[in-house]
Amino acid sequence: MLETLFPNVDWPAMWEATLETIYMTAVSTLFTFIIGLVLGVVLFLTAPNQLWANKVVNWLSGAFVNIFRSIPFIILIILLIPFTKFLIGSIRGPNAALPALIIGAAPFYARMVLIALKEIDKGVIEAARSMGATTWTIIRKVLLPESKPALISGITVTAIALVGYTAMAGIIGAGGLGTLAFLDGFQRSREDVTLVSTILILVIVFAVQFVGDFLTSRSDKR
């Protein structure tokens, strides 16, 4: 049945590519989350009238975020080739895609973190200060928990974007479903391979969306 519908699909290879895509998405999402969160919190707290108000740091982190958010991903990969070589030792394979994926997505997520933190009622931060909380306590016990639903929905959107980025990285040889769809499917005119790869990517995206939505609504007590 599957053989007749998709004569050219090499199922073990397809499976392996799927795992590679999941691997790249998961690892890059994890690092994007951590780096984006730190950057977002720094952007928030160093803004004028905030707890760490600091023009220089705010400007620098803002510039970093804006520049890397604006560079098209495909160009970012090329720009980062020397860096990737130095870090990973190769520019092929799933691990080689990670630096570009993370550097491309973390600023994007940092923006979303900033927006989420700005949504927090200033009054609760003031209340925490009036109780004698340190800034660290405010970050841990006020800023992050109070913006949790937005942080989760933000990382969901970012993870989905990262699935797309992995496919793009696949075209220049990162592996995963992108490579399979492009090299095996498109370049050799095997439409069935492209189709199955696409379906699998969609399945991954929907799964991420589903889990993200579930976690978001569960954390929202408003």
Partner: peptide
């Protein structure tokens, strides 16, 4: 406006 933490 009470300023309670809604997450708690």
């Amino acid at each position: 406006h009470f300023n309670l933490l809604w997450s708690r």
